[in-house]
Design a protein around this nucleic acid. Structure first.
Lengths: 177, 177
DNA sequence: AGTCTTGGTTCACTGACTGAACTGCTGCTG
DNA sequence: CAGCAGCAGTTCAGTCAGTGAACCAAGACT
């Protein structure tokens, strides 16, 4: 047990998982990482999360092997999902699905498609067209019928993640590069 | 929007879902509810959660339609999952699965079986024997190879939920009835 | 040299969580 | 009918975590 335990039940994998991703903001950070956000400042402005909290969450996620932290070509810092982090996609998908079902009457806010053939994915991530379980890097995410194009901030990062894009593909902001 | 928003992104169903189930303890309470816990005191002792926090979480979950609160035959209070609450099982399953994969080297801590035919369920909840997607009330949960029988408290509630049982089936404690 | 960008840290403030004790109601039980 | 037990909370003082704004250091750019 690497962490001081926050939940009593040491014999439950739900408790164990929540010790990593159950804190406030953590899953939102991971969602952004799936959407291609990699820079400290981009997480901070897009999520409007206090920078001190962001620092501590990123440290925890790196320590737990969910993200890697390394310097990119330009000498800047990049946070990226590891394989272990990528395996959190079903968790994000399940929560998004539940939120869509009960809090988005006009339809899903974001749809998943198989980037190869354009087929919609079902709840388990299976392509309706080709029937295969689509690996995360081949998933394209795009605004769905429940998405309100007027209801998000017009910063470059939000613009990028609200445009159809493949998961894990890095966003390109004006200043990057 | 019934709640004061805790996450900035109003256009994301993940943020919306986390406003309900993203607070500390909430998913653990829901897990217990799936395992058949229905009484205030049973949640409190099994989870070792401060009673004030439990009160506020239960209120939120009832207000959001995840749980119902009503008096049982004996005049005591019962909290039960609604249909909306039951649809959180994929979320719990996904988190448990991730926790099992990365924090339980000796195998899953709890296995899911189809109560009708005894078949193991895969990650999407499909029975390996009959191939059908098993509805929650037909799921039997039982200790798996990663479960450590010495590492849980020996109160009646913990004993009950660590014994093979169907989801949603109420636990029976010595004093109840 | 001076300014910009980036990735943080610091700090005072507030709000949430903790744990233990207490309350009030209901239903037995002698 | 008094008294006790079980249950579902409430109260409260202490602590800890999250908030938001300001500040800081290092490297790039002009």
């Amino acid at each position: 047990m690497t962490l001081p335990s926050t939940y009593a039940d040491r014999n439950c994998s739900l408790a164990r998982a929540l010790e990593i991703v159950g804190e406030r903001w953590t899953l939102m950070i991971i969602r952004d990482a799936f959407f291609g956000v990699r820079r400290f400042g981009d997480f901070a402005t897009q999520l409007k999360i206090p920078r001190a909290v962001l620092t501590s969450r990123l440290k925890l996620l790196v320590r737990e092997g969910v993200l890697t932290r390394d310097d990119d070509a330009a000498g800047s810092v990049e946070y990226r999902l590891t394989a272990k982090g990528v395996e959190l996609w079903p968790v994000v998908r399940a929560l998004m699905g539940w939120g869509d079902t009960f809090y988005s009457p006009s339809g899903v806010k974001r749809a998943e498609r198989h980037d190869r053939d354009g087929g919609l994915l079902d709840h388990e991530g299976r392509c309706q067209d080709c029937g295969s379980v689509v690996p995360v890097p081949e998933i394209r995410i795009e605004p769905g019928p429940g998405f309100d194009p007027d209801d998000f901030d017009r910063d470059p990062v939000s613009d990028a993640i609200n445009t159809p894009r493949r998961l894990l593909e890095p966003i390109t902001t004006p200043h990057a590069r």
